[in-house]
């Protein structure tokens, strides 16, 4: 029982970064831009947030700085793929390299320095530690509570508003959207920047809210899992909530088992989220229904193409 409560209490903190990043990626891909750079953008967000807080700033300032750093690199990515029509797969990988490279170089002096992170609800509210529900709530923070709401808001915006309709049209059929007056480049650029913002937030959350420290390789392929989550969620931010919870739960299992001193092969256990991702991707492909992939994902659109 104690194990269960402890596990439930930390699931949201493992779910949140995956959810934030995948919601951002979903919007980018719905607009037609394949975005593989999440791993690099998250690393950048995590490191920038950490060194901002280590420099004596408020955790919220840190989070803002982390998000801003990721937005900056996604501006570069956006210019490369939207304006300069670079190959989206390769440009995404370049963003990962740049993100990991910058964090490894700039972040080196700050590695392993702990700091006071984002307060938990338990620090802010008087909750009864004897009550299991109280314990679970006490372990949460503002962002982990806001993330699912944000995801649902993104779903509503995407599916129910005219602006969302225009963004989806850009990713489904840019020629049709263009004729309808959608500025494809502006839409895609905005979507890419939003993805950067969300990946930056996700990364900042890892360092400022979860670990209170910066270490290299902190993101540990969570960016790639977020990329896979986009496919699992069939490009729907609402489904991403469920998917992120699934992976968050698996991810949170290992530290809990370690904490209660269970004798498990730790490194093999840590494979669980990756194996689970592949397995669920496999199951999704068996379902046979439409994948939901935007029809023009990754395609270069040129108005003047003559056919």
């Amino acid at each position: 029982m104690d194990f269960l409560i402890g596990w439930l209490a930390i699931i949201p903190s493992y779910t949140t970064p995956l959810l934030l990043a995948s919601v951002g990626l979903i919007l980018s891909e719905r607009a037609g831009v394949l975005n593989l750079g999440a791993e690099g953008m998250m690393a950048l967000g995590a490191m920038t947030a950490a060194i901002t807080v280590l420099a004596g700033h408020d955790p919220w300032m840190g989070i803002a700085a982390g998000a801003a750093a990721a937005v900056a690199v996604s501006l570069l990515f956006g210019l490369a793929v939207v304006v300069f029509r670079a190959d989206q797969t390769l440009a995404g990988l370049a963003v990962v390299a740049i993100g990991l490279g910058v964090t490894g170089t700039v972040g080196r002096p700050y590695v392993q320095q702990t700091f006071g992170g984002l307060p938990k609800l338990g620090d802010l509210l008087a909750l009864d530690p004897a009550n299991p529900l109280g314990r679970i709530i006490a372990a949460q923070d503002v962002i982990s509570l806001a993330a699912p709401i944000l995801a649902l808001a993104a779903w509503w915006w995407l599916m129910k508003t005219q602006a969302g309709l225009r963004l989806r049209a850009a990713g489904e059929n840019p020629a049709a959207a263009d004729v309808a007056g959608v500025d494809i480049q502006l839409t895609q650029l905005a979507a890419v920047l939003f993805a950067g913002l969300m990946c930056g937030l996700a990364g900042a959350y890892l360092s400022v809210a979860t670990s209170h420290v910066w270490v290299e390789n902190m993101v540990a392929a969570r960016g790639w899992i977020a990329v896979a989550l986009v496919i699992l969620a069939k490009w729907s931010p609402a489904r991403a909530v469920i998917g992120a919870m699934l992976f968050g739960s698996a991810d949170a299992l290992v530290p809990r088992l370690q904490a209660i001193g269970a004798d498990v092969p730790v490194y093999l256990m840590m494979m669980l989220p990756y194996a689970l991702t592949l397995f669920v991707l496999f199951l999704t492909s068996l379902s046979g229904r439409g994948s939901g992939e935007p029809a023009s994902l990754g395609a270069v659109y040129l108005r003047q193409d003559k056919h």
């Binding site: 005219q162 959207a177 309808a180």
Partner: peptide, 20 residues
Amino acid sequence: HFRLVDRFSVAENVLLTLGG
């Protein structure tokens, strides 16, 4: 070649076209 978004309904296509 029709300029329709296949995955949208007829109404969504028209809404897209009519904009504001």
